[in-house]
Computed example of a mutant assay.
Amino acid sequence: MYSANPHRYDTMVYNHLGNSGLQLSAIGLGLWHNFGSVDPYDNQRAIVRQAFDLGITYFDLANNYGPVPGSAERNFGHILATDLKPYRDEIVVASKAGYEMWDGPYGNWGSRKSIIASANQSLTRLGLDYVDIFYSHRPDPNTDVYETAQALDSLVRQGKALYVGISNYSGAQTAAIIDCFKDMHTPFVIHQPRYNMFNRQIESDLFPVLKREHKAAVGFSSLCQGLLTDKYLNGIPDNSRAAKSTSPFLQPKQVKQTLKTVRALNEVAESRGQTLAEMALAWNLREPELACVLVGASRPEQLLDNVKALNHLDFTADELAEIDNILNDQSAIDWSR
């Protein structure tokens, strides 16, 4: 029988989501990779236990996470039932809809039918009556934004979600849907964008909107698919994501193009007494609108390293300037995939 670490809340940082009462752990666990039907269940269980023992209370899922799609929710649901059931009120479970999940016209995008059907399926896989946050995973170019907002609002009114969020929306799209949520008095609390040292577009596009509206963000791809770690400092390991030519998320050419930059950033991290990954996570959290950074894990020990970022969140003006100079020298790379 699993018994959680009694000191799990002693050192974790918790941040409010804008002007809402909800707080998230500054580091959250993303279940995009390593939690599917093809991954060892015992390892998944060990990772989740380690996360909660470290005070990580935010667990981020989506309907299509796997592979196969849906299996990450199903596996996490088993872990909830066997290990975390006594702690349900201490954790924040989030899921999303918007990417292709089933065949036909209703298993994708942001229509009312798709979002509500997907949320019902997610709750069944998770074995829950409600999720804490349900997201629109991406904007739908063919559905009026009010319909998507109304669908999310319905989930709250039906008791199937406590709060709602959006992901991958631009600043302008975010402002438009926030107006809808205001009209309906929907508890919209969070945006989930891609954000890391190599992906900074939202600093001038999205963050000003969130600041103006007193909303928060939780960043994904916080370590840029592992580039912002020590994994690729000496080349591409055979067992790495970049070594898999079929990976759509990190290509060998991207590793080679960023190697000089990554090594320079690593020198700054060493001068701060941190690993590159620790510094990269701390750097993300310097943004006041970013309440939480998502990390992935293929083994529990990685989380022990990740939370060390919270020991040194402060940066001097000189350090930030040096990091900016290093990043400004980086040639343009296409991170769209």
Score class of each variant (00 low, 15 high):
Q257W: 01
Q257N: 14
Q257L: 10
Q257G: 10
Q257Y: 04
T258D: 05
T258G: 10
L259T: 15
K260Y: 07
K260M: 04
T261N: 11
V262T: 11
V262Y: 01
V262C: 05
V262A: 03
R263P: 00
R263N: 06
A264D: 07
A264S: 10
A264H: 05
L265H: 07
L265D: 04
L265I: 01
L265R: 08
L265P: 01
N266W: 06
N266Q: 09
N266V: 09
N266R: 14
N266C: 13
N266G: 10
E267A: 14
E267I: 09
E267M: 08
A269V: 05
A269R: 03
E270D: 08
E270K: 15
E270F: 05
S271W: 01
S271K: 13
S271Q: 12
S271H: 10
R272M: 07
Q274K: 11
Q274T: 06
Q274M: 14
Q274S: 13
Q274R: 10
T275M: 06
L276N: 06
L276T: 05
A277S: 12
A277E: 02
A277K: 02
E278F: 01
E278D: 01
E278H: 08
E278W: 00
E278I: 04
A280V: 03
A280H: 04
A280I: 03
A282D: 07
W283C: 07
W283V: 08
W283L: 09
W283E: 00
W283G: 08
N284R: 04
N284C: 14
L285E: 00
L285D: 00
R286L: 05
R286A: 09
E287D: 04
E287A: 14
E287W: 01
E287F: 03
P288D: 12
E289R: 11
E289W: 04
A291Y: 11
A291L: 15
A291T: 15
A291V: 15
C292R: 02
V293M: 03
V293D: 02
V293S: 14
V293W: 00
V293G: 06
V293C: 10
L294I: 13
L294T: 05
V295C: 05
V295L: 04
G296E: 05
G296I: 08
G296S: 10
A297C: 10
